[in-house]
Design a binder for these strands. Structure first.
Lengths: 343, 343
DNA sequence: ATCCCTCGTGTAATCGATTCCACGAGGAGG
DNA sequence: CCTCCTCGTGGAATCGATTACACGAGGGAT
C-alpha cells in the first residue's frame, strides 16, 4: 500500500530528507557515518526513489521518445533495438511509439511523449511534417531525425545514403542484360520515398535507360501496396524485367504477387529490394538487396540526440548503404559451378 | 523555457487552479461560463497538463509496462504491436522493455518500469522467475504473464496451447513416412521451452515413436542456437529425418545450417517450426509451421491486465494454436497438380 | 583568545498538478 | 422572512522528491 518514501528512509537513518537525497545523488558533502546509515536504511526498507517526483522537480526524465514508422518492418525493429541499447548504455530509457505509417497515429504518439516530458525525441517521420512536429522542433524540443527527415528544419539527421548502392544495383542489373526496370516507391511525402526513386532514375540515366511513369508503382512501404503495384506491372502490355521495391515489406508483397501469377524469379522477372533482412537469404530465391548499417544508424542517432540534450553540438550523420548481390536478379557466374538456366 | 502551467491558464481565465483542474477532469460542477473561459485559455495558451505532476498526485500513470523476450523475433514484435493497439484503445500507453532473452536485462527493465510507477506489468519471463519478478508479484503489482509464465504464482496467464497443433504436426509427419523426428528446444527455464518438448514427446508416443536425447537440441530461441543444434543433428551417425524448431528464429538458424551443408528441404531433411510468420510463405521451401493467434493474445493480455488494475477479476486465457501445412516436410498431395519429387 | 572558513546538516520552498474543505450566493420550502 | 440545501468557487494541503539557504561546530591562522 504505502510505498516507502525518502521520509521513511530519513527517519530510520536518523537524518533529514536532505541528507538522504544527498547520498542518493552523490551530492556535496555527507559524513561517512551518515552515508553509511542512509545506505543501510535504503537497503533495509528496499527503498526506490520515485522517478515521477524526481523528474517533476528536476525537469528531466532521462527518457527519450522514439517514434518509428512501422514496428512490423524488420528494418525498424532492428533500428529500435540498437537505439534502445545505446540509450541504455548512456543512462537513458526509451519509450517507443509505433506510427504504423499513419501520420495521425504518429502525432498521437508525439503528443503523448511530449506530455510525458521526455528529454528528447527521435523521429522517423511518416509524412512531410505535421504541424505538431514543426511546432515541437521550433519550440526547441531536442529532436533528431533518423532514416527519414523533414527538409527545412534545423534538426540533425542520421541516415544512410543509398545512391551509390542503387548505382551499383543498376550496374548489376544492366550487366545481367535487363533493360526494362521498374520501381515500387514509398510515399512521396517521405524522404526515403522520393529519394530512392530519384537515385534509381539517376542511375538508369547513366545507362541511357528511361523510367516511364508506368514503371513507377506508388506504394506505402507496406506489403499490400507492394503486391498491388506488382500486379499492375505484370498486367502491363510490356511488363518490366525487374522490380525494385523501395523497402523489404513491399518486396514481400511483390513476392506474393509474382508467386500468385505463377511466375518464377529470376527466370520470368527479377526482384531487388531496399533494406536487407535475414530472411532474404532464405527466400525463394535469395533476394538481392541494399543493406543499411542499421545498428550504426541507431547508435549515431542516440549520440546526436544526447549531444543535443546535454548541450554539446550534434552533427548530422550520413552512412553509406551497400549492395548485397544474391540470385533474385539472375545468375551471377562467379565460381565454376554454374547452374544452367533453362532458356 | 517556462512551459505554461495550470496557474497560467487560471490567471488568463480569471479563475482558480481548482476550477481549471475541474473542467479538465470533467469533475463535479463548473458553471458553463467558467468552463468556456477555461477552455478558451487552454486553447490560447496551448496548455498541456504535466503528466508527471498529475501522476505524482493521483498515483496512477495510465502506463503499462511490457517486458518482451526478444523484439527481433517477429512473433514478439507482432505481439507488442497488438498489445500497444489494445492499450491505446483503452487509454493506456505502453513502455516496452526488450530482454533479449537475458534475465539480467529483463530485471533491469522491470526495475526501471517499477521505478516509473507504471500501473501494471505484462511480462513474458525470460527465465524461471527472478527474485524481482517474484517480489513484484507478491507485493501486489498488477501483473499478467503473456506467452510464457512462471508456475506457482497467483498471476493471470494469457497464452496459446500448442498441444493439439503439435499432435497434428506429428500426425502430418508420420503420414509422410517420417519416423526419426528431432526437436530444437527453447531454454528449459521457460514454460514455452519445456512445454513444446513435452507436447512433442507426447505426440510421438501416440505413434510409438521415441524421442532420444540425441534428438533434443538445446536452443535459446535465437538463430545461432538453431544453427548449432542442427549441425549436431546432421553430424549424427543416424541424423533425423525431420527437425522441428520451437520458434521461428531457431528455424531460421536451422535453414542456415541445412543450406550450409548443401542439403535440400524436404528431400534430404524436413523442417517445421513453432510460430508462423509472413516470411515462411516465401522461404525455400515454404515452411510448415504452428501459428499462434498472436493478435488475440495481445488483446486478451491487455484486457486481463486492465481488469486487474481497475478492480475487476481477470481470468487466465488459453487460445488454441493451429498447424499450417506447407511444403517443408514433404509433398502433400492435395490437388491433381502434383509436382513430381525426384526420388 | 579571536576570527573566519569549511564542513555537515536541517528547514523549508518548490516543481505542477488534484482534491478536501469552507464559504458565499441564491433558490426552495416552511 | 427565516432556514436549509445546493451549487460554484477558491484557498491550501498534498504527492515525493531536490536544493537554496541558514546555522552550529570545529579547526587553522593570526
Amino acid at each position: 500500500m504505502a510505498s516507502v518514501g525518502i521520509k521513511d528512509v530519513a527517519a530510520r537513518a536518523g537524518v533529514s530528507v536532505a541528507t538522504v537525497s544527498r547520498v542518493l545523488n552523490a551530492h556535496a558533502s555527507v559524513s561517512p557515518a551518515a552515508r553509511e546509515r542512509v545506505l543501510a536504511a535504503v537497503d533495509a526498507l528496499g527503498y526506490r526513489p520515485n522517478t515521477l517526483a524526481r523528474s517533476l522537480r528536476t525537469d528531466q526524465t532521462r527518457t527519450l521518445g522514439l517514434v518509428i514508422s512501422d514496428v512490423l518492418n524488420p528494418y525498424f525493429t532492428e533500428l529500435a533495438r540498437s537505439v534502445e541499447e545505446e540509450a541504455r548504455a548512456l543512462g537513458y530509457s526509451i519509450i517507443f511509439g509505433n506510427a504504423d505509417e499513419r501520420p495521425e497515429l504518429q502525432d498521437h504518439h508525439i503528443r503523448t511523449l511530449l506530455d510525458r516530458r521526455i528529454d528528447g525525441l527521435l523521429v522517423s517521420p511518416a509524412d512531410g511534417g505535421s504541424p505538431l512536429v514543426l511546432d515541437a522542433a521550433r519550440a526547441g524540443t531536442p529532436m533528431v531525425f533518423v532514416d527519414r527527415w523533414i527538409p527545412g528544419l534545423d534538426v540533425p539527421v542520421v541516415r544512410a545514403d543509398g545512391r551509390a548502392a542503387v548505382r551499383d544495383l543498376v550496374a548489376h542489373l544492366h550487366g545481367l542484360g535487363h533493360r526494362r526496370l521498374a520501381i515500387i516507391a514509398g510515399p512521396a511525402a517521405t524522404t526515403t520515398g522520393s529519394e530512392r526513386v530519384a537515385a534509381f532514375r539517376d542511375a538508369l540515366a547513366e545507362y541511357g535507360l528511361p523510367l516511364p511513369d508506368a514503371y513507377i508503382g506508388q506504394g506505402d512501404f507496406q506489403a499490400g501496396s507492394g503486391r498491388r503495384a506488382t500486379e499492375r506491372f505484370l498486367a502491363l502490355p510490356e511488363p518490366p524485367e525487374v522490380v525494385f521495391a523501395a523497402d523489404n515489406l513491399m518486396a514481400l508483397g511483390a513476392l506474393d504477387a509474382i508467386r500468385a501469377r505463377g511466375l518464377r524469379i529470376p527466370h520470368d522477372i527479377a526482384l531487388a529490394a531496399f533494406d536487407d533482412i535475414p530472411w532474404f537469404v532464405h527466400t525463394d530465391p535469395p533476394v538481392t538487396a541494399i543493406a543499411q548499417p542499421t545498428g550504426e544508424l541507431g547508435r549515431a542517432a542516440i549520440r546526436a540526440l544526447t549531444d543535443l540534450i546535454e548541450g554539446r553540438t550534434p552533427e548530422s550523420v550520413t552512412l553509406p548503404a551497400r549492395l548485397v548481390v544474391r540470385s533474385s536478379c539472375g545468375e551471377h557466374t562467379t565460381t565454376g559451378a554454374t547452374r544452367r538456366s533453362d532458356a
